[in-house]
Write a protein that binds this DNA or RNA. Sequence first.
DNA 1: GTCTATAGAGCGATAGAC
DNA 2: GTCTATCGCTCTATAGAC
Lengths: 220, 220
Amino acid sequence: MAGRRTDTRERAQRVALQLFAEHGYESTSLRMIAERLNITKAALYYHYKSKDEILAAVLSDFSTAVAGLIDWGEQQPPGPETRRELLRRYAELAASGITPAARLLQENQPALREQPLAAEVRSHVVTLFDLLAGPGALTGANGPAASLRVRLAITALHMAGEESELAEDGGQELLAAALNIACGLIDPPSADSASEKRAHGDGRFGGPFAQEAAPTPNHP
Amino acid sequence: MAGRRTDTRERAQRVALQLFAEHGYESTSLRMIAERLNITKAALYYHYKSKDEILAAVLSDFSTAVAGLIDWGEQQPPGPETRRELLRRYAELAASGITPAARLLQENQPALREQPLAAEVRSHVVTLFDLLAGPGALTGANGPAASLRVRLAITALHMAGEESELAEDGGQELLAAALNIACGLIDPPSADSASEKRAHGDGRFGGPFAQEAAPTPNHP
DNA sequence: GTCTATAGAGCGATAGAC
DNA sequence: GTCTATCGCTCTATAGAC
């Protein structure tokens, strides 16, 4: 491991992730990747046997990161503190540069549909969402709001993570703000929509559209 | 207008928007569009002189919808009621099917970079964001949180809009929940992050990461 | 308005020299 | 480990018949 002769493989993965996230998987050609590495297309095939394998290598980093996060979360007692700490750790991941991978996954679903590792990562994310909102939130069993809030919380961290790369102070203020927003989004689970119980007295959330909220005709 | 001989052009735009949003602009070939219309690739070139022109036609519908929304908004007195009504109207647009166009715009930025109409639409969206958060929010002048909250509010409506197409009741409950969440996101503008004033007493938003919040080193 | 046929370019991938 | 050269395919776009 320590004594290999070139670092092309690692550089290739860094460059490929960046390009996949920026231009999309299908629109990123092997020529583009090779040019940034100052090698030729054919040389890439010494390191990977297909374009798909480059994608898999890139995704596996993200997969293990999220897997580690949910391993920790599943060993904690469920509750608001654990959920907030999960968000905090995810914000750390976002700050350390996993957001390109997250964006790649989110914005290339059709292209990644045949990629087994993408399905694996996606199932990890589903587990993480369940931990953040209670089981079944993604399928809408807790009402539509809970699932939406969790996805928005993660989205907030992604947005901040991407922007923080451009910020002059490393984006710490931005990430702090995003984490606060994310915590606020998952903190009062099922506090609006059909069940109208308010966490605190003022009616600020009683927006329009709400008068139509039906008593949840879920398929049992 | 009323007496043309085929409806191929309109059908083509409907189909193209759907495919562009689902597979991405570059990954959608004219062959795919033509096959769904039961015509050939070459026939498409009778109606449009390039693939880019199909994209422009598809985007212009979205552009006029958003332009109408901000025209209304700019004639209203600024304030929370106007902002909430803007969100409500945007939620109506989302429910009526503009989310594929919004997704197309958001998820194909590199491919649409050369498309003039895309820049126009994007500037409309920026204006809408300004209306929703006060001027300068997108550039972060109000602190990082305000811009994030507005973008998350719109994202909530997009998420609900896309899912509502699959729901059995038209997704009204989901859209109502999303609108409530969106209103809650923009309602207390600049209520966290650096300036720590709370709208109401409980410290639920006082999350971690906040201890590092610096006093906003903005470039003036 | 729609078709067949084709030009010209870029793509992923392979073979084989060095 | 990297190169040149090439194969087979799909893409956008055009020419011209019907």
